[in-house]
Measured scan of single mutants.
Amino acid sequence: NARWTTEEQLLAVQAIRKYGRDFQAISDVIGNKSVVQVKNFFVNYRRRFNIDEVLQEWEAEHGK
């Protein structure tokens, strides 16, 4: 399903906090979204969920 429920959106943001840009890991956490759908989520929801800021926090924690 290409549509993202609110629950899936929140799950994705939590997974980004945990896995950074590991699209496969994020896809696995959500369970019903492909890697391509996760990559599209990054692009389409970047502003709404401040994904750049979430990634900066992840990179700071993981030394990337």
Results as ranks from 00 to 15, higher is better:
residue 10 L to A: 13
residue 2 A to K: 13
residue 7 E to H: 08
residue 29 V to I: 07
residue 55 L to I: 06
residue 2 A to N: 15
residue 49 F to M: 10
residue 62 H to G: 11
residue 9 Q to R: 08
residue 15 A to M: 11
residue 42 F to T: 02
residue 6 T to L: 14
residue 21 R to E: 14
residue 24 Q to Y: 04
residue 32 N to A: 06
residue 36 V to G: 13
residue 22 D to H: 01
residue 32 N to I: 10
residue 29 V to Y: 15
residue 26 I to K: 01
residue 14 Q to M: 09
residue 44 N to Q: 12
residue 47 R to E: 15
residue 47 R to H: 15
residue 12 A to L: 08
residue 29 V to D: 06
residue 52 D to P: 09
residue 43 V to H: 07
residue 19 Y to C: 04
residue 7 E to A: 15
residue 54 V to P: 06
residue 11 L to P: 12
residue 21 R to I: 09
residue 58 W to Q: 07
residue 12 A to Y: 11
residue 58 W to D: 09
residue 60 A to W: 06
residue 34 S to G: 06
residue 18 K to M: 09
residue 33 K to D: 03
residue 51 I to Y: 09
residue 20 G to F: 00
residue 61 E to L: 08
residue 10 L to V: 10
residue 34 S to E: 07
residue 21 R to L: 12
residue 48 R to S: 11
residue 41 F to A: 02
residue 31 G to Y: 13
residue 51 I to F: 06
residue 53 E to M: 12
residue 41 F to L: 02
residue 64 K to C: 03
residue 28 D to S: 11
residue 22 D to V: 01
residue 61 E to S: 12
residue 35 V to I: 02
residue 5 T to K: 06
residue 51 I to M: 09
residue 46 R to L: 05
residue 54 V to L: 15
residue 54 V to S: 06
residue 39 K to R: 11
residue 42 F to R: 02
residue 51 I to P: 06
residue 27 S to Q: 04
residue 5 T to A: 03
residue 1 N to A: 10
residue 41 F to I: 00
residue 33 K to Q: 00
residue 5 T to S: 11
residue 17 R to K: 12
residue 42 F to M: 12
residue 18 K to W: 05
residue 54 V to F: 05
residue 10 L to F: 06
residue 32 N to T: 15
residue 19 Y to G: 00
residue 14 Q to D: 14
residue 36 V to W: 12
residue 5 T to Y: 04
residue 32 N to M: 02
residue 6 T to E: 10
residue 64 K to Q: 09
residue 31 G to E: 08
residue 16 I to K: 00
residue 32 N to H: 01
residue 3 R to Y: 08
residue 52 D to S: 06
residue 19 Y to R: 04
residue 19 Y to F: 12
residue 12 A to Q: 00
residue 53 E to K: 14
residue 27 S to Y: 05
residue 1 N to S: 09
residue 26 I to F: 10
residue 20 G to S: 01
residue 62 H to P: 09
residue 22 D to A: 02
residue 10 L to N: 07
residue 58 W to I: 08
residue 31 G to T: 05
residue 58 W to N: 08
residue 43 V to L: 12
residue 16 I to N: 11
residue 54 V to A: 12
residue 26 I to G: 04
